[in-house]
């Protein structure tokens, strides 16, 4: 019988993991500011986007609890991001290879 679905799955809540993720996010912010001054040529924006993606991944999995949710949630997020990615790929297929 399952008519009292508790909010989170059976994991004990801890403060520590959030503090660790927060520290990691701050360090990554520092890194992204530090490397912005260095010119990697075409890789500069790729570096910035890579760091932003790692930060987003941490926020999604830990802060937004995707790690503890059922796989359906991750699947949904994956499909949404895939849609966005397809939009970017098609846009640039139009613009940069003409």
């Amino acid at each position: 019988m399952d008519n009292h679905s508790h909010s989170n799955n059976n994991h004990t809540p801890h403060y520590g993991i959030y503090i660790i993720v927060w520290l990691a996010l701050l360090i990554l912010t520092g890194v992204t500011v530090a490397v912005a001054g260095i010119d990697f040529g075409g890789l500069t924006i790729a570096t910035a986007l890579l760091i932003a993606s790692i930060k987003s991944y941490l926020v999604l999995t830990i802060f937004m609890h995707l790690k503890n949710e059922s796989k359906v949630f991750s699947l949904f997020v994956g499909v949404a991001l895939l849609f966005l990615l397809v939009s970017f790929v098609l846009l640039f297929a139009d613009y940069s290879f003409l």
Partner: peptide
């Protein structure tokens, strides 16, 4: 927060 994570490098750090 995530949206800002992308806005920050794309506007301030280029």
């Amino acid at each position: 927060d995530i949206i800002w994570i992308f806005l920050f490098p794309l506007f301030y750090l280029i």
